[in-house]
Amino acid sequence: MKFTVHAAYRALEAEGLVTSSRGHGTVVRQQTPLKRLGIARYDKAKWRDADEVAFIADRVATGRAYRRGEQTQSVSRVEAPPAVAAEHGLEPGAEVYARARLVKEGEQPTHTLTSYYRPQYVEGTRIVDPTPGPTGRGGGFRVLYDAGYEIDHMTEELFARVPTSDEVELLQLPAGEPVVELHRTTYTADGTVVEYAIGLHAASRFAWKYDFKVPDSTRDGKAAQ
């Protein structure tokens, strides 16, 4: 009987219906994924004029609640990894601030996000305050805006891959579940990079949605790419 129950748990875990982790046992997984808004989550009306930071906008769009303790963070001044230095246009070995967050829904982790900033842009702001939770009203984008760095556009790249053993433990992933790695570069209107962020998302816990105007480079007078 013991082996039958164990096999049943393994089958449910393989189908993504339950998840097992050390210290948490076996629990039923949330079946409705969070809507991970692609563009609407960055609407300035949310973070500049209100207090809805990007990941909370996802919760609102999904009809789910958020509690302050569901985001933890650490802030440190570190030597920029090569990809970070390249995006910021820094020399190898230059220092940046790294603001790392682990976001949960209840007790279940959903994703991580680490934002990297040039020190001169964020020194003395709430971005480098390690207090858990968002950086106050409007989050990091509002802090940059108040410091004179209004975000204008950004690029996002997504990569699906197999997680490392440390990532499996951190995100409490079931066997065989991939992760979606996000690279986000945020610019001001003059092209200054004010944030470069790397996120890691449990693939089954998000449904990605993009709503955008279809470009017409011929009508707009732009050269075709």
Rank of each mutant, 00 (worst) to 15 (best):
Y145V: 01
E91L: 12
E70W: 11
P215W: 08
R77A: 08
V194R: 02
Y116T: 07
D190V: 01
Y97W: 11
A14R: 11
T114K: 06
D220K: 06
Y187N: 02
V193K: 07
A86D: 05
F3Y: 09
T112W: 07
A83F: 05
L12A: 13
S20A: 08
Y116K: 06
G148C: 05
L17S: 12
A57S: 12
K209C: 09
D211E: 09
P82K: 14
V84P: 06
A85P: 01
E87V: 01
R161A: 09
V75I: 03
A80C: 03
V180Y: 00
S21E: 01
Q73D: 06
L171N: 04
G106H: 00
F141P: 14
K35T: 11
V28Y: 09
V122I: 05
D211C: 02
E167D: 08
V84L: 07
H6D: 13
V84S: 08
Y42V: 00
V122F: 01
L34P: 03
H201K: 14
Q172P: 02
S217A: 14
P82F: 03
E150R: 12
P119M: 06
A160M: 13
Y116I: 03
T62S: 09
T19S: 14
L182S: 14
T19R: 11
K222T: 12
P163G: 05
